[in-house]
Design a protein around this nucleic acid. Structure first.
Ligand SMILES: [Mn+2]
Ligand SMILES: [Mn+2]
Ligand SMILES: [Zn+2]
Ligand SMILES: [Zn+2]
Lengths: 154, 154
DNA sequence: GTGTAAATGCAAATGATTCCCATTTGCAGA
DNA sequence: TCTGCAAATGGGAATCATTTGCATTTACAC
C-alpha cells in the first residue's frame, strides 16, 4: 500500500509552490474544530507572529480550494464563506442559530435512489448536494431556557 | 371555510401599512418563476415606471421576510440573497450550475425519523433544514455536449 | 382633517472579497 | 551553488451586495 503523502509531496504533485503561508493555513484548517472564515485564519496567523496579508489568505484559500485541498462552505444567514480541509468522506452539518457552532454529521441520510429519480423526473444532471439542519446546540438550548426563567421571574 | 384573505387584510392583521411598494413587490415575487435577487425586483419595478429606491426594496423584503410573507434563500456560490413568496408547502431546489436556473421540488425526501434521531444523538434542537441538489439543467447539459463536440471537431 | 409613528429616498457607510501592480520568492535548470 | 523567471505576495484601492443615518413623506387611527 502507498505511504500517506506529505503536504510537500502533495504540493509538488499539484505543481504548487510550497510556501510557508500555504503550509500554515492548511495546518490551521486541519487543527480547527469546525469550518472557519478567512478572517479567523488571518487572526490566527497574526497571533502566532506569522506575517501575512489578508489578500493572500483569500488567494491561498482559493488556490487550495481549486486544488481540492479545501472546501468552501456557505451557511444560511452568514454572509462569509467558511473553509474546511478536504477530508475523508462526504458529510453534512448541524448549525446552531444561537452561537454558530457547526457539528459535523458523518452519515448521508438521503435515500439511495433519490438522485436518480430526481434526475429522471426533471431532466437534470446532479453533481452534488447540500444538506444542513438548523437549530440550537445544547448550550444555546440551556441559555434559552434560562432566559425564559428569568423573564418569568421578573 | 374561511375566505382567502386579500393582501390588504394580511397587511392589516400584521399591523403593516399597506403601501404601493409592498403590494408591487409581493406581486413581482408571486409572478416570478423562481427566486430572484433584490436587484431584479428593483429593475422590474423601474421597468413598469414604479419609482422606488433600492434601499426600500431591501427594507421591504426584510419586513416581508420578518412577517413570513417572503423567504430568503442563500445559494452556493452566489453571494446575493434570493427571495421567494412564502407558499403552500415545504420544498427544496435543484440548482443549475450552468445558468442559475432553480427548479422547485415539492417533496421532502428526508426519512421520517431523521430529525428525531439527529436531535437525540447530538443533543441538538432542530428547527429547520435546507436541502439542495446542484447540477445541470437540460439546456446546459446540451450546451456542454455541444461544446465537447466542437472541441473534438477542431 | 390632524397628529404621529411608520415608511421612504438618497447618500454615505459597511463588510466581505477581489483586483492591481510593484516587489519578493520558490525552484527548475545550468 | 548561482541564475532567471514564473508564481506568490503585500498593501492599498476597487467592487459588490447590503445596511444605515437622517431629512422628508405618507398611511391610517382617532
Ligand atoms: Mn449527503
Ligand atoms: Mn425537507
Ligand atoms: Zn449554539
Ligand atoms: Zn442551466
Amino acid at each position: 500500500m502507498s505511504q500517506p503523502s506529505s503536504i510537500f509531496d502533495v504540493f509538488k504533485q499539484l505543481k504548487l509552490k510550497t510556501t510557508p503561508h500555504r503550509i500554515e493555513i492548511l495546518k490551521i484548517l486541519r487543527t480547527a474544530s469546525q469550518p472557519i472564515p478567512a478572517d479567523d485564519i488571518y487572526a490566527e496567523l497574526r497571533k502566532i507572529n506569522h506575517n501575512i496579508s489578508l489578500s493572500t489568505v483569500y488567494r491561498t484559500l482559493e488556490t487550495l480550494s481549486e486544488n481540492s485541498l479545501v472546501n468552501k462552505i456557505g451557511i444560511e444567514n452568514d454572509n462569509r464563506t467558511l473553509y474546511e480541509p478536504v477530508a475523508d468522506s462526504h458529510h453534512h452539518f448541524l448549525i446552531c442559530l444561537g452561537c454558530g457552532k457547526i457539528i459535523k454529521i458523518d452519515e448521508c441520510p438521503l435515500p439511495e435512489n433519490l438522485e436518480k429519480s430526481l434526475e429522471d423526473q426533471n431532466n437534470f444532471k446532479i453533481v452534488s448536494h447540500k444538506l444542513e439542519h438548523y437549530g440550537y446546540c445544547a448550550k444555546c438550548q440551556k441559555l434559552t431556557n434560562d432566559d425564559l426563567k428569568n423573564k418569568l421571574h421578573n
